[in-house]
Amino acid sequence: MVFNSVIKKEGERMPEIEVKGKKLALDEDGFLQDWEEWDEEVAQALAEDDRFTGAKVELSDAHWEVVRFLREFYIEKGVAPPIRQLIKEMKKRFGPDKGNQEYLYELFPQGPAKDACRIAGLPKPTGCV
């Protein structure tokens, strides 16, 4: 089991990320606190931030397809898509080669929920999930 939460020392505030000279607040798992602060440069910075998952993600066009889709979905529906729906939608849009779990995990080794949502600037879904 991997525990991803960054362990802070006493007195340390929430982690931040600096983009274009502006400091943006993250949570303990490296997710952007305010989804509206996101733009593509922020995404780039989040992808290069390896403090939380231990590995950088090199954003290619294939990554951007997923990230943009997540972003659209979130703005329309209020939440990141469930993994089953994500796979189905990817299949519809980009064909069966890209609409499967293996493909998504290849792009985002920490999993679409952890890595892709983080880079897309979306909060983690909570509740009984």
């Binding site: 329309e76 529906k77 209020g78 939440v79 469930p82 089953r84 729906q85 189905k88 909060p123 879904p125 909570t126 509740g127 009984c128 999930v129």
Partner: peptide
Amino acid sequence: HISIEASARTGNHLGLYPLGIAEALES
């Protein structure tokens, strides 16, 4: 509180809007 706030605002813990719910059920 994340879930309580979302539930008070949208009706469910996840913060899913009506369209999202309908589409998820369609799925």
